[in-house]
Amino acid sequence: MDTIVQVRHLTKEFRVLHRRSGKWGAWNDFFHPQYRTIRAVDGISFDIQPGELIGYIGPNGAGKSTTIKMLTGLLVPTGGEILVKGMIPWKDRRKYVANIGVVFGQRRTLWWDLPVIDSLEVLKAIYRIPDPLFKHNLGMFRKILDLDSFLESPVRSLSLGQRMRAELCAAFLHNPALLFLDEPTIGLDVVAKERIREFIRHLHREGTTILLTTHDLTDVERLCERVMVLDWGKILYDGNLQELTSRFEGVNEMRVSFAENGEDGLLEGLEPPVREGRYYVYRIDPRKVSIPDLVSSLYRTHPVVDLEIRKPKLEDTIRKIYENKSLNTPD
């Protein structure tokens, strides 16, 4: 299949006024402004294949939103290239945006004072959605996103969760092959989040290519096979989600409680354990030790009462990546 998104050495710089402090700071800023260049996105490259669902994660200010804004044609890159479905987003913006769907979790696109359905009707005309397709999509989204109870209500009267569901529906009525979701679950409760994930899953099954930006790593764990981790405008990791955990922290935890405690719990081939109450906690590198073999031999040789293997949490792994990087990067 052809690559749908191609990004090469993409860079975006912003020139910001460096504000001076002190008594005469504002005065000096007015007459002799000093500018400083900030590189929000620093030469990133990646490809997206049709049908992929990618989690795009990184701490605040990492450059995620800036990337999305360039990918959706809102911002003009300072350097590098973006080619999406053969188009350069910012150059062919009007033609291009008819082919994509965008949801900004912190912005609204629906008409504030009018019923949701009115906004959808306008979008139908704007995107030239044929009648049957409109009916089909609306019917489907009503079910998945549970829109029926508020389709006739003015947007301003909706709860945040309802509004986000309506926004998702609006962004997808024209069947775009490519969807950009910028923090679609921000500020939502668990139930609302799950409903939105269900919708994303549905679109993914239908073959839509989706780039998902989020701070909620549960979104990523539940939905994405591939993740890209961004910090300081650079991609720190791009690949499989499972590999991410093993690559950055290969260590699992094995917690064992034996029938007779009192020994030092030393096991051959493993580091000495730490005692936590009834449990001995061993750190295991699955690349060196086969966990299934270890567990079965342990049951044969020792009177095991309870045994538990804990995989590192994605959150911890990601935090490690951020922390390591920021230690190595001079400010």
Binding site: L74, R94, K95, V97, A98, R107, I126
Partner: peptide
């Protein structure tokens, strides 16, 4: 909020 207008094909 201009972003919402710019992502429309009009």
């Amino acid at each position: 909020s201009i972003a919402s207008d710019l992502i429309k094909p009009v």
